[in-house]
């Protein structure tokens, strides 16, 4: 693995103007991603994790901040300037069905991106479709099938094959396993891992499933109301979760106990995620935080380092 920096995200923010009000979707997020690494983004619905993925791909324009891809500042790139980079940056969605035409066969769907980017001859593309199907573990006959004839797991493999068809460097995986059954999830995770090693892929892995993010990621950021409240190498973050929100998230996962005595007491956190139109003053998490003190209600905590590469935005973190 090389230590080449593929992507740098500097203080990126996104605000949407909705009916005359500002919705704070992403607030000043920064991270750096090396080639071959996986950056995990966790957070609950409305945390801004998918928006952030789309900002990186420039499917959305950042309101503030800079996005640097392979040394080039692409923040203000036009669609035309982005065109050659599009091949290198791909996305895998939660619902692959939604991004496929029901009237296109699987083979056509995989070939489509190559046609758009004018890659290869018809014959070469067909050969590539066969290779890709085999690589993602699908029988070759699948290329004659239509999306509705496949299971969710098979469709996600097709989604992966499509993303790989252009030989990308960066792949954004946006909840790619959330809609799948447990036994199929593991298969897809294993496939994503193998592909990463074989093709030196760099991933941004977006999920609400903390355990899966821990499993796959090198570095993890926890988002709450569009802000990174904690960011650290995966092992560090999960062995020493420091932000109260990260702790709450981890405690909310119901693990399978080893005996009846070890069953978890159901301890809910109070309240709900506040409206992103009107984020709380001070720390965004203070209204729900079991440890909040006066200072948290008035002063917004800056992100600071509490260990090597371990950043936390909490006044009380040590």
């Amino acid at each position: 693995m090389s230590s080449e920096v593929l992507l740098e995200v500097h203080e990126v923010s996104k605000r949407f103007r909705v009916q005359g009000r500002d919705l704070h979707a992403v607030e000043k997020v920064s991270f750096q991603l090396q080639r071959g690494q996986t950056f995990g983004l966790v957070g609950e619905s409305g945390s801004g994790k998918s928006t952030l993925g789309r900002l990186v791909l420039k499917l959305l324009e950042a309101t503030e901040g800079r996005i640097v891809y392979q040394g080039k500042d692409i923040t203000r790139f036009t669609q035309k300037q982005m065109r050659p980079l599009r091949q290198e940056m791909q996305i895998i969605f939660q619902d692959p069905m939604a991004s496929m035409s029901p009237r296109m066969t699987i083979g056509m769907a995989i070939e489509d991106a190559m046609i758009i980017h004018r890659i290869g001859t018809k014959e070469e593309r067909q050969k590539r479709v066969d290779e890709l199907l085999e690589r993602v573990g699908l029988p070759r006959e699948v290329k004659w099938a239509y999306p509705h004839e496949l299971s969710g797991g098979q469709l996600q493999r097709v989604g992966i094959a499509r993303a790989l068809s252009l030989r990308p460097k960066l792949v954004i995986c946006d909840e790619p396993i959330s809609a799948l059954d447990v036994s199929i999830q593991v298969q897809v995770i294993q496939l994503l891992r193998e592909l990463q090693q074989d093709y030196d892929l760099t991933y941004i892995f977006i999920s609400h499933n903390l355990a899966v993010v821990e499993y796959l990621s090198d570095v993890v950021a926890v988002l709450y109301l569009g802000e990174v409240v904690e960011q650290a190498p995966a092992e560090e973050l999960f062995s020493r979760p420091t932000h109260p929100y990260t702790q709450v998230l981890i405690q909310s996962i119901l693990k399978m106990p080893r005996s009846l005595e070890e069953r978890q007491v159901l301890t809910p956190i109070q309240g709900e995620i506040p409206s992103p139109f009107d984020p709380p003053k001070g720390c965004p998490f203070h209204p729900r935080c079991p440890m909040a003190v006066d200072r948290c209600r008035t002063t917004k905590p800056e992100r600071r380092l509490i260990g090597p590469n371990h950043a936390v935005a909490c006044h009380l973190a040590t």
């Binding site: 299971s151 797991g153 098979q154 447990v182 036994s183 199929i184 999830q185 593991v186 298969q187 995770i189 294993q190 499933n209 903390l210 355990a211 899966v212 821990e214 499993y215 995966a234 092992e235 999960f238 981890i250 996962i253 693990k255 399978m256």
Partner: peptide, 17 residues
């Protein structure tokens, strides 16, 4: 089932569907 703390563990998927 992947749980927190399973980072180093190899996966054992059930084959097929």
């Amino acid at each position: 089932i992947i749980e927190i703390g399973h980072r180093a563990k190899p996966l054992k998927p059930i084959p097929g569907m």
